[in-house]
């Protein structure tokens, strides 16, 4: 395992978001994920780096792919996993989420992977439990492993992030993927554009060095990467645009728009995708799409994060 000594440079027992990570830390995760991907033969094989450790998935919000990905990543490293799902508020059972988490921690888990509809809940959790906490999505705030797997996929395809123009398209307001991507991409030197309906793209992003655009057609020729975000209907109180039809006319990536894009453009989507709304099937399944690479890299990133946080919390692998 001496190839993974880079873990010593990682000091965080929790991964709560990308906003407060340095470029070096992000690069370290990406490098570790690439190594693990190689060591597992493309995330297919098993290692025993975390044998004896127990990872708890604590999901207060529905999720299929992220939870599955974390579970599989943990098992690929030899850890045991337990799943705890509760779609409703913990309060409905008369228990605070901190009580719930402490109960799970008392089962001697080494890490809690948490998803919650409310921003900041993983941060509060981390203050209240001893074990590692990994944010698997807190409301529309952050989804660090999604941001990392997107960035890993871009780096894999292009060799580097610096100097690329990456557009995040769609429902920026309600997207945790957007926020984690913005922080990570900016730190690694990309030019980030947020593009979507003006009701879903705040002007405040400009103050943080992000380009704000409302016309996909206007920015399309400049983009090296398009990340097409899902419209988060479930988080919107009042639909912020008149119809899906109008949205698709303005923002859907389709075959016609592909003819006006750079020849080597990368098409990404965090999934699940609304085919027809954000992306047409010909593009989703076309040669520029790296959507399924993203899924595979998700495993690599989650292996890396579980491994690194574990090592930081325990100063080394399980004995």
């Amino acid at each position: 395992m001496d190839k993974l000594v880079a873990a010593e440079a990682w000091t965080r027992a929790d991964l709560l978001g990308l906003e407060h990570l340095s470029a070096e830390e992000i690069t370290l995760i990406l490098d570790t994920a690439e190594q693990l991907k190689t060591m597992t033969g493309g995330c297919a094989g098993k290692l025993d780096l975390l044998r004896g450790a127990t990872i708890a998935n604590l999901f207060f919000e529905n999720s299929t792919r992220t939870r599955t990905s974390f579970s599989l990543a943990a098992r690929r490293l030899g850890a045991d996993t337990i799943d705890f799902s509760s779609s409703g508020s913990s309060l409905s059972k008369g228990e605070t989420f901190i009580d719930t988490a402490k109960n799970i921690e008392a089962m001697n888990v080494d890490a809690i992977v948490v998803r919650h509809r409310t921003p900041g809940t993983p941060h509060l959790l981390a203050q209240n439990v001893e074990c590692c906490v990994v944010n698997a999505g807190d409301g529309a705030h952050e989804h660090p492993t999604q941001g990392l797997l997107d960035i890993m996929t871009i780096r894999e395809q292009r060799g580097q992030i610096e100097g690329l123009t990456v557009a995040l398209v769609g429902d920026i307001a309600h997207s945790r993927t957007a926020r984690s991507n913005i922080w990570g991409l900016q730190k690694l030197g990309a030019h980030v554009i947020v593009c979507g309906p003006s009701t879903l793209v705040s002007r405040h992003w400009e103050k943080l060095g992000v380009e704000v655009a409302y016309s996909l057609d206007a920015i399309l020729p400049r983009c090296d990467v398009l990340n097409l975000l899902r419209i988060q209907f479930e988080r919107q109180l009042m639909r912020p645009f008149p119809s899906v039809r109008e949205y698709a006319l303005l923002y859907a990536m389709n075959g016609e728009r592909m003819t006006r894009a750079k020849k080597n453009i990368l098409i990404m989507a965090p999934g699940p995708i609304n085919r027809g709304a954000e992306i047409t099937p010909e593009v989703a399944d076309g040669p520029h799409s790296v959507i399924l690479h993203q899924v595979t890299n998700g495993l690599a990133i989650r292996m890396a994060v579980l491994w690194l946080t574990y090592c930081a919390a325990n100063t080394g692998a399980p004995s």
Binding site: P119, A140, H141, H204, L208, L237
Partner: peptide, 17 residues
């Protein structure tokens, strides 16, 4: 104010609250 939790501005945008 619907589901509002905090002042609407740059910080609420970043925190997605």
């Amino acid at each position: 104010t619907a589901d509002g939790v905090m002042h609407e501005g740059l910080v609420s945008m970043v925190l997605a609250l």
